[in-house]
Amino acid sequence: MKMGIKTYTFLRKIHLYASLSTVALLLMYLVTSYMMIYHSWFSSNDNQEQVLSVKVDPSEVSDDNWELFRNKHSIKGRQTREYLTESGDLYREYVGAGSNFKITIFDEKNEVKIKSVKRSLAGTIIGFHRLRGYGGPLQYNIYALLLDAVGLSLILFAITGVILWLKLLKNNKIAWTILISGFVYVSLIIGYLLFV
């Protein structure tokens, strides 16, 4: 495979910058992946659960005043669900890395039930791994953008890494053995799951 020095340098820059730009999230994903593999080591008993019933004036939970209500009751996170229950109550859910709020505004709008879960430190760290998607406050959208960058970086530095290796050590038998065995193994797993 012939490659000019300019192309090689360009690919090396992509390889380097792809990893440098996402290193914080990559480290977080690597650490939390192990935490998820060994999830039984991290007890969910340390989560703080609370159910609160609040008497309200209907105007307090109107759309105009909803943000005030949220601030007053420290309801954090991004809204992930909203629907009317069969009994006509309004249900809203807010999810953040470290917390989860399930809110039921009863039909008469004079009572609100707030069920909150504040996760432990381990739960919060794992919560970062599970957060995804655009929408909601600015920081969630920036995080989603970073997540896209991580996805793209993973693909880019795997591909550029293999190309750079071909330039550097294309006659290295150990490298070829590792690459081919990795490819064969992953292909067999995918093939088996696909066809059996």
Binding site: V150, G151, L152, S153, L154, I155, L156, F157, A158, I159, G161, V162, W165, A175, I178, L179, G182, F183, V186
Partner: peptide
């Protein structure tokens, strides 16, 4: 890097 290259691509996607 070579050992994990296919895993990285799958995770990126």
């Amino acid at each position: 890097g070579l050992f994990t290259s296919f895993y990285l691509i799958a995770f990126g996607i």
